[in-house]
């Protein structure tokens, strides 16, 4: 079904403060469409980023991200507020990714993030006129290495790394989201960082990373 042109803009910083988020949640429980739209605005880029890194296929990631918000909209009546809205959305995203991975019988080592192919179709709006092209290229290249390293680790390690280091979720929050003990979250986080560090070391030493 996807005929989307993919992602086109760098995500704007649209974090909601807790008071306005709580007000939006109350309205969303009554299926207020406009309030839900604001929540989508605030979280769409982060959820898409997470899902893209989890399933590696951009078109599939766009579909899954839509499903995340559809499920959230339909299930808002059951959102009891015991966890944060962010945790709840990422839990839905995580479960959908796991379902999709199971369905596709995907093996982590088989898929690689094809950074060059993905970059060709994207245009990036640069709002800051003081940008440094050389620095940006290096940053992009380094980010590509980090993305590649993330894409080659197992789903278990990747999920913990992204939720903790990218989304700033706590150990307990991640443990609750994934349904695993806190100690396991810490172990996986350590291993994920070790995996990433190994890739970056190779890159710095001039070795080819793939």
């Amino acid at each position: 079904m996807s005929v989307f042109s993919g992602v086109t803009r760098l995500a704007a910083n649209r974090h909601l403060d807790s008071a306005s988020e709580a007000a939006l949640i109350e309205q969303c429980r009554l299926q207020n469409f406009e309030a839900f739209g604001k929540i989508v605005d605030a979280y769409q880029a982060r959820v898409l980023g997470f899902v893209k890194r989890m399933c590696a296929n951009t078109e599939e990631a766009l579909d899954i991200t839509q499903d995340v918000f559809i499920r959230a909209y339909q299930g808002f009546g059951r959102f009891d507020g015991r966890c944060s809205l962010r945790s709840w959305l990422f839990k839905i995203a995580y479960n959908l990714c796991v379902d999709r991975v199971r369905r596709n019988d995907r093996h982590p080592t088989e898929l690689r993030l094809d950074a060059s192919a993905a970059d060709e179709s994207e245009t990036i709006d640069v709002a800051d006129s003081r940008w440094d092209p050389e620095g940006m290229i290096l940053d992009e290249e380094f980010q590509g290495v980090v993305e590649l390293a993330i894409s080659t680790m197992s789903d278990k390690l990747r999920t913990v790394l992204l939720l903790h280091d990218k989304e700033d979720m706590g150990y307990e929050e991640i443990a609750e989201t994934m349904g695993i003990p806190v100690g396991t979250v810490k172990s996986r986080l350590f291993l994920a960082r070790a995996h990433l560090q190994g890739y970056v070391r190779k890159y710095w030493n001039g070795e080819t990373v793939q």
Binding site: G6, V7, T8, A12, Q44, L48, I70, I124, K166
Partner: peptide
């Protein structure tokens, strides 16, 4: 290492994607 991951950029989906989402909603 945490900062490397934290600095990864996220991108907004296209307006066509958002429009399709609104239709589904």
């Amino acid at each position: 290492i945490r900062s490397w991951v934290g600095e990864l950029t996220d991108e907004d989906p296209s307006l066509a994607w958002r429009s399709a989402l609104n239709e589904r909603l």
